[in-house]
Design a protein around this nucleic acid. Structure first.
Lengths: 144, 144
DNA sequence: ATCGTTGCAAAGGCTTTGCAACCTG
DNA sequence: CAGGTTGCAAAGCCTTTGCAACGAT
């Protein structure tokens, strides 16, 4: 089986492919969602691939630093992570009442507009933009 | 002196205008920035309007719930707050290296585009959108 | 064999909470 | 005067860290 993209990234950064590390990335591959450290920890337990919670934190941080994961924040007091290379680039809708998070993507013209914004801002502030996140907050269909 | 807008909001929600509460909002009025609870606490000390840190937290939360403040997150592990009704609506650029945050506004076409997005998303997900936030991450001019 | 990585438990940082005293409307 | 609000200290949560044992290259 050929290396997956993220394994190349590990090698390129001289990072070892340990059992826990591999298992953690696989949780995200099988679970295309924004998981908290505790979520990941739980998923690993279910698969009998237990890793200490400290290991989970250390790896989420490391994988974020080298660009395999993204850190997102929904205002619930903990960090969440998701794979950077999802099939489709997306953003989030967060319910202010129940905390539910909806991923959305493919709104017509959005990516073009974001490119326009990035170009304008990087020029205006001499800022090298590497990523962006858009959040909409409100009430979901159940909470309205 | 006529009531300021936020004082009406307090009254409307049956919330008392206490000394600490007033002082906290004034910190934001004089300091149009994204402050953490600790920042606010410090500013109050400087003005000899000390309030316990718990009071600061409780009020930041309350003021956020009734819409006078907005909660923003820059990935530094603590919440930051800013006045909702700034003279100009704005978003943030966050430096991944030094953590510096730049407020920006008035990029041509941005507000029109966001309205378009909101309309589309609220229809698609039956979601009542109340606010939004856009973050760009990258390297500031000093860190590049 | 080397040096990164792991687990555990302890420590740390931010935020929330219980409770009695206090203050606003 | 009633009920919201405050201060203080303790407790709660999420996250990080020290250190010895372990494991990938």
């Amino acid at each position: 089986m050929p290396d997956r993209e993220w394994q190349k990234t590990l090698r390129k950064n001289n990072i070892k492919l340990t059992t826990s590390r591999k298992a953690i990335v696989e949780v995200f591959e099988d679970n295309r969602k924004h998981l908290s450290a505790e979520d990941v920890h739980e998923f690993l337990k279910k698969r009998n691939q237990k890793a200490g919670i400290a290991t989970v934190y250390r790896n989420l941080d490391l994988l974020t630093r080298i660009g395999i994961l993204h850190r997102v924040n929904f205002g619930d007091g903990k960090d969440h992570f998701e794979m950077t290379h999802k099939p489709i680039h997306h953003h989030h809708l967060v319910c202010n009442k129940c905390g539910k998070v909806i991923d959305y993507s493919e709104v017509m013209g959005e990516s073009e507009f974001v490119s326009h914004l990035e170009k304008e801002l990087s020029k205006r502030y001499e800022f090298k933009i590497e990523s962006h996140q858009i959040y909409f907050y409100g009430l979901c269909n159940k909470c309205r």
